[in-house]
């Protein structure tokens, strides 16, 4: 019996993505699911927010991702005196050329790690976030394109909140996905302790991809088929997040639910996840794999944490 239900077209992509994931998980040990979500975020042309305590491998993840995919990488440590120019770049007067010369800031990299983004004042935050949204920087009347692919990984430290500027909900919405890395499990931690710091290995990692290929993968992800049945499911989830379960009349807007844009982002992330799994169509399983990351930070603020709320939503809504 030969069963070939899945279209074979994207399998080579999946194999290469599998290799990428495998290499990543050698550096960031025991975090397969967050790694897969992070990769999906990149493939869906979104930006990633990691909310976690220091020391669980956030910057390692960002750097490993950049190296493995053959992208250049910059890290910005956000502090309370960081200015927009420190992020975007600055024009200085070149006496030799008798003209202003633009010195691009760290944002002109393909993978940018914005570490502890909530430490910087809102002005600097919004400079970064605008650049993320527009994928270009406008300064001194000139618009400069950011590299493509362009991928920001921002981290927030949820513990030390004194003297910080937590991102407002509208800014959180700029991030496609938000994940928590969390502590490694016992086995992974033991391996980590035995083999020492992984930072040293980072420079030796081979690049498994290049920017044009990554752009092609991003286009492939956008081509993944989304069936009407899956759209029904997305709509049921959106409706449920707004406080009324499918089939029951309720009061729309009783709770702050997911926006239509969140729905679009959910579909994009679902497609990327399907590509990672080597499918030509998006399945509910793909959606469920990214749902908590898409919806969690958008549903936060209630009595329960966003991820818990998102998981409860998944469990409450039946597949149409």
């Amino acid at each position: 019996m030969t069963v070939r239900p899945l279209s074979q077209s994207s399998v080579p992509v999946a194999e290469r993505l599998g290799a990428v994931l495998q290499q990543l998980s050698r550096v960031v040990v025991g975090k397969t699911d967050p790694l897969r979500v992070a990769l999906a975020c990149l493939l869906a042309r979104g930006h990633l927010l990691i909310e976690d305590i220091p020391g669980v491998g956030k910057s390692t993840l960002a750097q490993a991702l950049a190296t493995t995919l053959g992208l250049n990488y910059a890290r910005i440590q956000f502090t309370s005196d960081l200015l927009p120019a420190d992020v975007l770049g600055v024009s200085i007067y070149d006496e030799n050329a008798q003209a202003f010369r633009f010195l691009p800031g760290p944002i002109f990299h393909s993978v940018v790690l914005a570490d502890e983004i909530n430490r910087a004042p809102p002005k600097t935050q919004s400079a970064l976030l605008e650049a993320m949204e527009e994928r270009q920087v406008s300064m001194d009347g000139q618009t400069r394109k950011l590299p493509d692919p362009f991928f920001v990984i921002a981290t927030q430290n949820p513990v030390e909140q004194i003297g910080t500027y937590p991102l407002p909900e509208s800014q959180l919405d700029r991030f496609l996905l938000a994940i928590e890395l969390g502590y490694p499990d016992a086995d992974a931690e033991r391996e980590l302790l035995m083999s020492g710091d992984r930072r040293a290995q980072l420079s030796e990692l081979p690049a498994l991809c290049d920017p044009p290929t990554l752009a092609q993968w991003q286009r492939d992800a956008a081509q993944i088929h989304v069936a009407p049945a899956l759209l029904d499911y997305v709509q049921a989830l959106l409706a449920a997040s707004r406080g009324h379960l499918a089939g029951a009349k309720g009061d729309p807007g009783a709770r702050r639910g997911l926006s239509p844009r969140a729905g679009l982002m959910l579909i994009a992330a679902t497609r990327a996840m399907a590509l990672i799994h080597g499918r030509s169509m998006a399945l509910p399983e793909d959606l469920q794999a990214v749902f908590a990351a898409v919806a969690g930070h958008r549903l936060a603020g209630g009595a329960r944490s966003g991820a818990v709320e998102a998981n409860a939503l998944i469990r409450a809504v039946a597949l149409p």
């Binding site: 069963v3 239900p5 279209s7 088929h225 069936a227 049945a229 899956l230 169509m281 399945l283």
Partner: peptide, 25 residues
């Protein structure tokens, strides 16, 4: 599982031979 998932979520024409084959599977 795979046949059903493809039939329901895949990109298949309504009366295609592919679909018929999958149903048979």
């Amino acid at each position: 599982g795979e046949a059903y998932a493809t039939l329901r979520y895949g990109n298949l024409a309504a009366e295609s031979r592919e679909r018929a084959a999958l149903i048979a599977t």
